[in-house]
């Protein structure tokens, strides 16, 4: 199923692959390991070594490449040739044998079925909100998950994204025609999100992804909980936490940890999401929900 939004997004990623990086940064596998975000490191520890993983919408593949470092079977699929070609270069450069890359459109059920196997872990981080058919996409990726398998879905939050939308409005309208100011603001906004911006390709990638993206939607916790319920997925937790007074240490507990959170009530969800406006404004309101498919 090729949608109008899908086409625009595909074109966009062909031109500006994401998450972009300078290939030179990853001369060794150790470089890739060190460059992993703290959250990617927690995610890696939360998944056993012998599990099979598929990262849907892997883009240039920094996350799935990192996860493949100590595993036998990690897949990365994406529909953008531009992003995948960079991923392939990385695979070749670091000789990542256990990392399989394939061009697949997640909205196309036939292509999904053609993969011909199911995985223990399905990750879909920051992808579905660019498809235009988020719910449909979610149901499609579930086809790749084994019964009893685990899923992680990262999306923009309806509340949490408000500050970025304001920044975006400022950057695109108010400062648009002022070159000097524009660059300063751009610099500042990007620093806010990813810290130092020495890797120019990475900074450009982030700017495009967050500020120039042709299509994005936002989603609330309640919405995703409904999808989970409707598809026989047990809810584990969200990151950041959507439970009130939750002081579990994410670093030790990892994700998919049943002790850390309980199912958030309507009121708790509202309170937490309002808090996310401030709490997640640097990440552009990004949040991830973790669950497990019923056996």
């Amino acid at each position: 199923m090729v949608t109008e939004a899908g086409k625009r997004v595909q074109e966009f990623y062909n031109k500006t692959p994401f998450p972009d990086y300078e290939l030179e940064r990853f001369k060794t596998k150790e470089d890739l390991r060190i460059a992993a975000y703290p959250f990617a490191e927690i995610l890696d520890r939360s998944i056993p070594e012998n599990a099979s993983i598929i990262d849907v919408g892997t883009g240039t593949g920094q996350l799935s490449a990192f996860l493949s470092l100590r595993r036998k079977c990690v897949w990365g699929i994406d529909f953008s040739d531009g992003s995948l070609s960079k991923a392939r270069k990385l695979k070749e450069q670091l000789k990542l044998k256990s990392w399989t890359l394939k061009k697949v459109d997640l909205l196309d059920t036939e292509q999904i079925e053609a993969i011909g196997r199911k995985f223990d872990y399905v990750l879909c981080m920051g992808v579905l909100h660019h498809t235009g058919y988020t719910h449909q996409g979610f149901e499609n990726i579930l086809r790749l998950l084994k019964p009893g398998g685990y899923i992680g879905v990262g999306l923009y939050n309806t509340y949490g994204r408000i500050p970025l939308q304001i920044r975006k409005f400022l950057a695109k309208t108010i400062f648009k025609n002022n070159n000097i100011l524009n660059n300063t603001i751009k610099d500042w906004f990007i620093r806010m999100q990813i810290g130092n911006i020495e890797d120019k390709e990475r900074a450009r990638g982030w700017w495009s992804d967050q500020y120039l993206h042709p299509y994005e939607t936002t989603h609330s916790v309640g919405e995703v909980l409904k999808w989970f319920k409707g598809n026989q997925i047990d809810f584990y937790q969200t990151v950041p936490s959507s439970t009130l007074f939750d002081d579990t240490s994410l670093e030790t507990a990892g994700v998919w940890n049943t002790t850390s959170q309980k199912y958030p009530s309507f009121l708790a969800r509202i309170c937490k999401q309002i808090a996310w406006i401030w709490q997640t404004h640097q990440e552009g309101g990004y949040w991830i929900t973790f669950g497990k498919k019923k056996i």
């Binding site: 490191e41 927690i42 890696d44 520890r45 939360s46 056993p48 070594e49 100590r70 240490s249 670093e251 030790t252 507990a253 990892g254 998919w256 940890n257 002790t259």
Partner: peptide
């Protein structure tokens, strides 16, 4: 010893779940 525990888990690439 939260830091020491985190180090122990990180060194084996696991979380408390394991």
């Amino acid at each position: 010893p939260l830091n020491a525990i985190t180090y122990c888990l990180k060194s084996q690439r696991i979380t408390m779940g394991q």
